Simulated assay, not measured.
Amino acid sequence: MMRFDPFREIEELTQRLDRTFGQASAAPTRFAPPVDVHEDEQGLELTLDLPGVTPEALQIEAENQTLTVQATRAYERKEGRTAHRVERAHGTLARTFSVPPKYDLTKVEAELNHGTLTLRVPRSEAAQKRTVTVRTGKVLEQDTGASA
């Protein structure tokens, strides 16, 4: 026995209308991929899910304390096939992050591995933790070797 789901029928109707009026092949939509943001002593690490995106389709820009990730994933529509369900996101994927000045956007590192993009943003030199040596104001007398 199947549970009644009133939204399932609405979803199926919406998909049928999209297929009928060609929305699956219309202009690409824009969506934000999910992201995890972590911070440690070295800096920030941002991890985005970008399945099916190639490095060539990826654009990463860093400017004015803003980090932008943009990619395009095309919808592959083949002739002679009918799409019954199109749920995977396609079109333009974009996320923009405001990065505090304590991070150095000139040294961002990016790695794409199995559909996961990892961005590492190090702390700026000025924001690095430093140990400060304490000096005393006392001047040490030198021993001249002469006795009085």
Results as ranks from 00 to 15, higher is better:
11 E>R: 13
62 A>Q: 11
56 E>T: 07
140 L>N: 04
71 A>S: 15
114 H>C: 01
59 Q>N: 11
137 G>P: 08
124 S>D: 05
49 D>L: 13
146 A>V: 05
65 Q>C: 03
115 G>H: 00
127 A>V: 02
58 L>N: 09
51 P>A: 01
65 Q>M: 01
108 V>D: 06
58 L>S: 11
132 V>F: 09
37 V>T: 08
75 Y>M: 13
50 L>R: 06
104 D>T: 01
135 R>Q: 12
89 A>R: 10
86 V>C: 05
140 L>Q: 11
66 T>Q: 14
18 D>F: 13
69 V>F: 04
45 E>I: 09
90 H>P: 03
64 N>L: 12
135 R>M: 11
144 T>M: 10
116 T>F: 01
9 E>P: 02
103 Y>D: 02
113 N>P: 03
146 A>G: 04
97 F>L: 08
15 Q>G: 10
29 T>E: 14
35 V>R: 08
145 G>N: 09
142 Q>R: 15
16 R>L: 03
124 S>F: 00
3 R>C: 01
147 S>E: 13
104 D>G: 04
106 T>A: 15
104 D>N: 09
81 R>Y: 15
92 T>N: 09
100 P>R: 02
13 L>S: 10
19 R>T: 03
43 G>Q: 04
62 A>S: 15
90 H>I: 01
90 H>R: 07
133 T>W: 09
7 F>G: 07
42 Q>W: 09
51 P>K: 00
110 A>T: 07
128 Q>K: 15
138 K>E: 03
77 R>V: 10
106 T>N: 12
5 D>M: 10
61 E>S: 15
114 H>E: 14
128 Q>P: 07
108 V>A: 09
126 A>H: 14
20 T>N: 12
37 V>S: 08
71 A>M: 02
128 Q>V: 07
126 A>T: 14
131 T>F: 04
87 E>G: 07
38 H>N: 10
82 T>E: 11
144 T>L: 15
22 G>A: 00
141 E>G: 06
117 L>C: 01
123 R>V: 15
30 R>Q: 13
65 Q>V: 01
129 K>W: 00
57 A>F: 06
47 T>C: 06
51 P>N: 00
28 P>E: 09
78 K>Y: 11
109 E>Y: 05
57 A>C: 04
4 F>W: 07
94 A>H: 08
68 T>F: 02
59 Q>R: 13
89 A>L: 13
91 G>L: 00
86 V>R: 09
34 P>G: 09
134 V>I: 09
4 F>V: 03
77 R>I: 03
52 G>V: 07
51 P>I: 00
82 T>P: 02
34 P>I: 05
1 M>F: 04
67 L>P: 04
84 H>A: 06
106 T>V: 07
37 V>I: 14
140 L>R: 11
8 R>M: 11
85 R>P: 05
146 A>T: 03
60 I>N: 08
5 D>H: 14
50 L>E: 01
125 E>G: 02
19 R>D: 10
35 V>N: 08
78 K>L: 14
75 Y>G: 14
103 Y>R: 00
37 V>P: 05
85 R>S: 12
11 E>V: 10
25 S>F: 00
59 Q>V: 10
142 Q>Y: 10
37 V>M: 11
55 P>Y: 03
37 V>W: 05
141 E>D: 12
99 V>G: 06
131 T>L: 08
105 L>K: 08
101 P>H: 03
63 E>F: 11
122 P>R: 05
74 A>R: 14
65 Q>F: 04
128 Q>G: 06
